[in-house]
Design a protein around this nucleic acid. Structure first.
Lengths: 129, 129
DNA sequence: TAACTGTATGATATTATATAATACAGATGG
DNA sequence: CCATCTGTATTATATAATATCATACAGTTA
């Protein structure tokens, strides 16, 4: 698994790892049923404590992204988690508003912000599928 | 100033307040030169400690959003802060990627995520200008 | 001078983040 | 059966982030 952590970032290591694993899934580098590294192996790979990598997987499991099976390992769950449309819309709206406010404060207009979103999709996700 | 904090949210109160003040600025409810509530007044309004409201303004001042003047008050700074295009693009790209990954994981496609961004702009910002 | 401003300091409490050591239980191949 | 993988649980520890509180100092202005 190609995961690169910024150990000097202010963003918590667990949050970084969680985002990157989700990214690998939406890129379809990791597909439903695929096995992820074990708690202890990922800890070695990322120079983290096994307790920390376990928390990464636990949090992902709680969100329905992976499934943890004692004795077997951690596996990518089937498809997207069925949250209510209202819940999804609410969560994403807040995140979108944060992006808009930051962008506008930097002096960009809506179109420029939308262009950044599209470029990120094309470059980081669309091409990899 | 109409600021509503969620005192039970996991998001820090200072971060919530900072986003909402920036929102008022991009909405142009607050314009360059306008005076914001004093450290002590905002503390009363939001039921926060003056030390906390001061940190809110200090952080905003460090980002170039407001200017603090001893004896006078806190004022909205002129225009957007002149960060380098590279810095801006980098910061927004990461935030955009986070939005994309969350949305795709919820089962949405790019077009649906873009629609949420546009709706947030139209409803929360565009109409208020 | 009084009454506001922002600022600084030090103490305290709580929570989040991350490490560490250890132990327990499920799965599997030899 | 057993060694060796798996995830899981527990407890302790350390550090940083978040927020409160009390107090004091200095700038501005009526």
């Amino acid at each position: 698994m190609k995961i690169a952590l910024d150990y000097h970032s202010s963003e918590p290591l667990t949050q970084q790892a969680i985002l990157q694993i989700k990214l690998l899934i939406v890129k379809q580098v990791l597909k439903p049923g695929d096995r992820l590294p074990s708690v202890r192996q990922l800890a070695k790979d990322l120079s983290l404590n096994p307790t920390t990598t376990n928390r990464i997987f636990s949090q992902l499991a709680q969100e329905g992204v992976v499934i943890q099976r004692p004795g077997l390992g951690v596996f990518v769950a089937d498809g997207p988690t069925p949250f209510s449309a209202e819940y999804i819309n609410n969560a994403l709206s807040r995140q979108a508003l944060g992006l808009l406010v930051e962008g506008l404060r930097y002096g960009l207009d809506y179109e420029q912000i939308r262009a950044i979103l599209e470029k990120q999709y094309d470059c980081e996700i669309r091409n990899k599928k």
